[in-house]
Design a protein around this nucleic acid. Structure first.
Lengths: 215, 215
DNA sequence: TAGATAAGTTACCAAACGGTCACTTTTGCA
DNA sequence: TGCAAAAGTGACCGTTTGGTAACTTATCTA
């Protein structure tokens, strides 16, 4: 009826390949997050109101689609600036890590990401391993070295020991567990997520016995 | 061919119902831990060297079997003594929680338990929720109250605030994440698990800035 | 040792599943 | 406006899957 002069009128019945692919991936992310990778393509297609053959027009196989889902979920959410953030020596390590984990949580703590991450961990396509390699190389190890420095320990560039790494994996775990509780275990998290993250980092540095560790 | 009029041949060919059921459950625990609950009953049966119809002679349905797997994995591993352990006021809270988490890890941190726990969390049959209710009621909340006491805070029996609970969920997460890394993410954990648990609890109380937080 | 009963097997079913293909409809463009 | 290419459809295929039933074999007991 109205002119389709550049307005957003959904005039078209058929989508263009590119657009459809994007829509499929977007929809698949949510779908696989909910039902795991065993979820059927027919179900997924039904959600988009098309027949499941459409999926196979745009993707070679279900596995190929899953591959794309991985891409979309993981890779796009890593902020390279974090890598230098950890090394900003004009601020305390505590400040840096607080900022990192607050931002990290903001980007990564959502239903789709967390569930797909854990799901694929169980399936072990080797993807979580690769992701956690990044976390170790770019965050955990640098943080361990920075802590050593901040503590004023006389130490050359010897690589961090496994106990030093473990310390920061502990922090990482404590923070990430917030997300697991919320999105995997489905526990109601009363407290605001950012506040919880801040408190966790804070306690990591102060210790629980240090009087009030939060606000 | 020649008769294997077995001198050494396995005498009994048929198992008795009770024994077989146990064997199926045991085998199913490992099997579902590996392949998730979508794993096929035929595969499972093949592992035991029987046809898959055997499973359905002993269990009404696959779901019924899964139910039994839950029982076997979860419920049998909670040690009621832990509940009083947290309250032993003749020892520091730190000592109590160290002992608790060391013992907890010993019982619970194995391939089958951790993977089935996480798997069923994703599927949300409501089982993980029930389990974590126990953890909260018997460990997290009491610990929060004990800490309040230990800090010498003047406080009646007012229920712990969500920030106080969050603190101990953080500890719990840090500890449990060790298991997740090992059994879900498949990361090589170089450090001894018990040592890692001790270090985590230790750091929880001391804070990272407190010089050496580990031995 | 006979025969009842329990344990196990083979063959089968119906639904679900990933994937394909011939066909129809929509859409861009000469 | 006509038509070829692109997008979408429905019917179909072969395999997998949970589950069943009729049969065979092992085991217990009178």
């Amino acid at each position: 009826m109205t002119s389709d002069t550049g307005t957003k009128a959904p005039r078209r019945k058929n989508m263009r390949a590119e657009e459809r692919e994007k829509l499929i991936v977007t929809e698949a992310v949510r779908f696989f997050a909910e039902s795991g990778f065993e979820g059927q393509t027919r179900e997924l297609a039904k959600r988009m109101g098309v027949s499941h053959a459409v999926i196979y027009r745009h993707f070679e196989s279900k596995d190929a689609l899953i591959e794309r889902v991985y891409d979309h979920v993981y890779l796009k959410r890593w902020n390279p600036e974090w890598e230098s953030l950890v090394l900003e020596r004009n601020r305390t390590l505590r400040e840096r890590l607080t900022q990192f984990y607050v931002e990290y949580a903001e980007r990564v703590f959502d239903y789709d990401w967390v569930r797909i991450f854990v799901s694929s961990g169980l399936k072990s396509y080797g993807l979580t391993e690769r992701y956690l390699d990044i976390v170790r190389n770019k965050i955990i190890e640098p943080a361990a070295m920075e802590l050593r420095r901040e503590r004023g320990e006389v130490n050359p560039s010897a690589p961090p020991g496994s106990d030093e790494l473990e310390l920061f994996w502990g922090l990482h775990g404590a923070v990430f567990y917030i997300a697991i509780r919320k999105f995997v275990y489905n526990m109601p998290i009363e407290i605001d997520v950012e506040e919880a993250v801040r408190a966790t980092v804070s306690n990591f540095f102060d210790g629980a016995l240090d009087g009030r560790s939060k606000r």
